[in-house]
Design a protein around this nucleic acid. Structure first.
Lengths: 174, 174
DNA sequence: ATAATCTTTCAGTAGTTACTGAAACGGGAG
DNA sequence: CTCCCGTTTCAGTAACTACTGAAAGATTAT
């Protein structure tokens, strides 16, 4: 079916620009759009990829939690299916990326602030001004990251109901 | 100064995982954290990169709108400075990524829906069920993207005041 | 006009990431 | 136990992306 192929291709392209490799995004798109459990061979055949690639990418998708393994009664091989709820998928991804990427940055910012504090105790006044500017910039970034973190937390905690509520609130407020 | 270096490194790492190349992210981090206009040679020297690389990356940052060119009176060479307002930077980036990545996906989804509509007019009932499932999945994704788009639009239009307002509203509402 | 100074471009290459295919692994059935 | 069927791992390689450095292009001064 061509509509599915089109969707899969686009999803793969988008994934790439967000730092997710194309094949992984495509596999996910395939599982999502067919809305049916597929086995490794189905995926290999449909997307023309090797067994190894399919295996590794499916595992990664399972690790993210947006694809689930599924044993069919009496069948030997494993099947995979995508979550059906986009909001839930988004929550899972947001949670993981926050943990992996935003939290470390926040920690680094605080570390930098501490380094500045320690390093400027007995410094000549000439250097002071630069340090002051840097300090301000760090503070600005810190504030931003904290707020963003809070928004993420809302999304993460509430999945669908949370997001739609968020949106309602937002759209009313402006 | 070591605090700056640490910040620059981390920012570069984060950029990478979000699909922005490391050097570009590092240059931006440098301009942001020093909070002072730097020229191409400053950047080259500080980050140990070639002239070509510096030139291209600086141009790209200017294209995104988060770095500005700056002519100093009586100086021949150009200087570059980062926007100081993180919220404004975020708005610019969000706007651009929405345009480049989300809008095309939404369009593709609609195209897929249309293809399904056209393709199923005289089809046997056996195929119907699959198509129905696919249609549902497309609809789910469409809804999600539309809502996300609206949220983005809020951020884009209002930058800092918008975002902080968003946060206040959110924190009160939950 | 020419020179001086800075910027941009781009072909070639280094470095990185993704993918394949074959071998090793695992576990249920006979 | 061994055989069979499916899964995972991983070394080697293909494909891609980022980077360099040198040459061409701008712009201002002389």
């Amino acid at each position: 079916m061509t509509a599915q192929d089109l969707f899969i291709r686009r999803w793969g392209e988008m994934g790439q620009t967000w730092g997710i490799n194309r094949t992984m995004a495509e596999i996910h798109a395939l599982l999502y759009i067919t809305a049916q459990p597929l086995c490794t061979d189905d995926v290999m055949e449909r997307l023309n990829i090797s067994r190894g690639n399919a295996s590794m990418s499916l595992r990664a998708l399972c690790d993210w939690g947006i694809v689930r393994r599924l044993h069919k009664r009496g069948e030997r091989r494993e099947y995979f299916e995508s979550l059906g709820d986009v909001w839930e998928m988004f929550s899972l991804i947001a949670a993981e990326r926050k943990r992996r990427e935003m939290d470390p940055v926040l920690e680094t910012i605080r570390q930098c602030q501490q380094m500045l504090d320690e390093g400027t105790l007995g410094k000549p006044a000439a250097k002071r001004e630069d340090v002051q500017l840097t300090r301000q910039r760090l503070a600005g970034m810190e504030e931003f990251m904290e707020v963003t973190n809070k928004i993420f937390q809302q999304f993460i905690g509430n999945a669908r109901s949370g997001l739609t509520k968020v949106v309602k609130v937002l759209l009313k407020a402006f």
